[in-house]
Design a protein around this nucleic acid. Sequence first.
DNA 1: TTGTAGGCGTTATCAC
DNA 2: GTGATAACGCCTACAA
Lengths: 347, 347
Amino acid sequence: MLSQFKWMSMPQKQVKLIDIANKLNVSIGLVSIVLSGKSKERRISDELAAKVIETAKALGYRPNQLARGLRTGKSGIIGLLVADISNPFFGKMARYIENEAAKLEYQVMFGSSDENPEKLENLVNMFASRQVDGMIIVPVFQSESFLLSLQEQSIPFVFIDRYCEGVDEDAVVSDNYLGSYQLTSLLIKKGYGKIAAFANDLHLSNIKDRMHGYTTALKDSGLNYPVEDFIFEVDFDQLDTRLEAMLKQALENGCDAFFFANNKLGISSLKYFDKVGLTIPEDIGIVCFDNPEAFQVAKPGITCVEQPIELMCAKAINILSRKIEGKTESKPERISLPGKLIVRESC
Amino acid sequence: MLSQFKWMSMPQKQVKLIDIANKLNVSIGLVSIVLSGKSKERRISDELAAKVIETAKALGYRPNQLARGLRTGKSGIIGLLVADISNPFFGKMARYIENEAAKLEYQVMFGSSDENPEKLENLVNMFASRQVDGMIIVPVFQSESFLLSLQEQSIPFVFIDRYCEGVDEDAVVSDNYLGSYQLTSLLIKKGYGKIAAFANDLHLSNIKDRMHGYTTALKDSGLNYPVEDFIFEVDFDQLDTRLEAMLKQALENGCDAFFFANNKLGISSLKYFDKVGLTIPEDIGIVCFDNPEAFQVAKPGITCVEQPIELMCAKAINILSRKIEGKTESKPERISLPGKLIVRESC
DNA sequence: TTGTAGGCGTTATCAC
DNA sequence: GTGATAACGCCTACAA
């Protein structure tokens, strides 16, 4: 009779410390001590401790982390702020952060800024409001002032993927300069003479470093042309509308090779080249920073640099947890980890 | 002198209700009322309200959501439990969930189960412990009993991507049957006669439905061969070691076309086919459920079904928020949303 | 229209 | 060894 209404069965009240205290006729404090694993140092008798633990399990007790957090001042949550969680690069980052955080018993909350400083600020404020113990932040253009003010507050954070000019805070990034230098040099070695560079936002530290690697490789090879004419900037939100036009222009400028500063640009351009019937690597050479799955499947495979995401995340969490525990006597540092050059057939 | 020690400047104490109450010589309750936007209904004078809001802003007040949550019983957090956040499919899902949740002022916490029921259970328990207001769950094989027990508790949840046999709870999935039927039918129409199907875990509801679409399409076309010999199951963690062997066996069995039940299988197989020099679509035909970026870039492009992830997420959050608000008079339902068939050149 | 006080579930500091 | 009791920061009857 009742079973057909099972789906509207009443919520069960959460069991709390006092419930198990009552059941055992002991004080609530005692239960708290035992369940937070301090039986030994408080010298609670083994049998009592065992009984407490047992009935806690029997009753299905689950500590209320809100209450615990309020009392202890630690939420056990880490905030991850990326540009866009649906970008596979950040997706992988989220996964590794999750893994590393779990080892330290942290849960992770995430947010996507869409490279928008207001969104980032909002998210950071929300996270702070939720008392996250720390944050891992991918800073965006024009967020300096806000991030500076964040430093004044008590909540620790570390940058990842890019650092923020003017904000002296720990950061762990891949070696954008080196990777780009290698990629560009390879293009040159293969005989390409006019190499265009495409980037999304020339203000970002990682992109700057990539561009620096590109220009330096050109200079070192004695290649000499007005580099400004060969660097193209395309915002992600203009990708569909403007990318093709710029690609076309680069081609008209006589470019015979392309260095893409991130996976999205690379992938979108691939489609364009296919559409207009350019063959790679004969007509044009291609290299790209970052190694999405598409580059392995593409024909020819795309030569690229794979970022050491896992290592970056481990390092970031490591630094962050030390900061959270307050043992950070050292000055902030910028850690730059080398990626892996993956040579395929696109140049 | 001091500036060089800026990086070790002292944390600032969080400003709270009482701070702004003191500053204004009003009671803390008054401040609370104003800041939670209840000035009107409590008929607080406009000027007082304005003053409160102003100094709150001036002092940089940020409500402590732990305290608020403890008091109100709502954390404002939604838990998202996927198989693996680094899988682009789930990454996109996370993004849309984030967007939808933000509209309702929810933050989202995520966790990856790796298709492992113990991990899922742990994560769900942690989330419950953190008092999430609700969860969106991608159920995994052998999690029925645990999920049933979760139903007994007061925390609302909804399934996404797959439902869970034996657990009568709301679920929103893509129309796995239909998509697979279309894909398989297309293969048949193109003249392929022996079609193998590859899947990761035949126990999962979505995979089951995909297999059902595949087998039904075969039957409807009068194709008659021992289907059991043409269905291959490869776990994700065996991908590298076993996939190739199975692909090889399928080929030896005379298969001339392949239906892949998810993007990972499809992408990995593509690499194999390339390695052994099979040309698509001449030697073999290929279709796949799900539309990762790689399939657009691959040559030839891979025919596939794109899942309506955005719609699924909107629906899921919609249902969940109604449940959270307690207005759910209806029985749980399983919503199945059709995807989009994308025909490319792989068959 | 505003102030007071109790309590949300825990932890921690005391006494006993 | 164990048990009261006071916070943590906020909300919300209920008084005034």
